[in-house]
Amino acid sequence: MESSKQKRCRSSVVETIEAPLPLVWSILRSFDKPQAYQRFVKSCTMRSGGGGGKGGEGKGSVRDVTLVSGFPADFSTERLEELDDESHVMVVSIIGGNHRLVNYKSKTKVVASPEDMAKKTVVVESYVVDVPEGTSEEDTIFFVDNIIRYNLTSLAKLTKKMMK
């Protein structure tokens, strides 16, 4: 009930990466290693692995993420809701932490780019989150879009480096 009173907002960030889909997906899907491409993640510890799939990679897995200093949060607890290697979809929820992103849920979908299916990949990350008290919807979207964009830019750099 309390949740339904809170204003929510949603947005999507799209990034085209100059790398083949399998490479991009292999990094994105590693739920236990977000620090590989997420710019503000310092380290990650798996709290529990889900029943299915490889250790720490199954549905229901929970990770404790430590964030870098200077960032407006120190840690975040996140759960893997869905991971589909056929349709290249990953759904992650934030379930705790000392940040202001409450009821955050994101869906990341990866598809080969129509421009060049063998060498380019389009990553779409869509999310929904409560608008924190005292912050406007516009600012919330700006902030989260910004973080996601930084992460995907970092992912692009990483894949470029890996292909050398």
């Binding site: 503000f40 200077g70 407006p72 912050t135 600012d139 700006f142 910004n146």
Partner: peptide, 16 residues
């Protein structure tokens, strides 16, 4: 750029 108030004023909501 933009300054967003996210745990205080921050450049792009990130740096204080």
């Amino acid at each position: 750029g933009r300054v967003i108030y996210w745990d205080g004023p921050r450049v792009l909501g990130v740096l204080a």
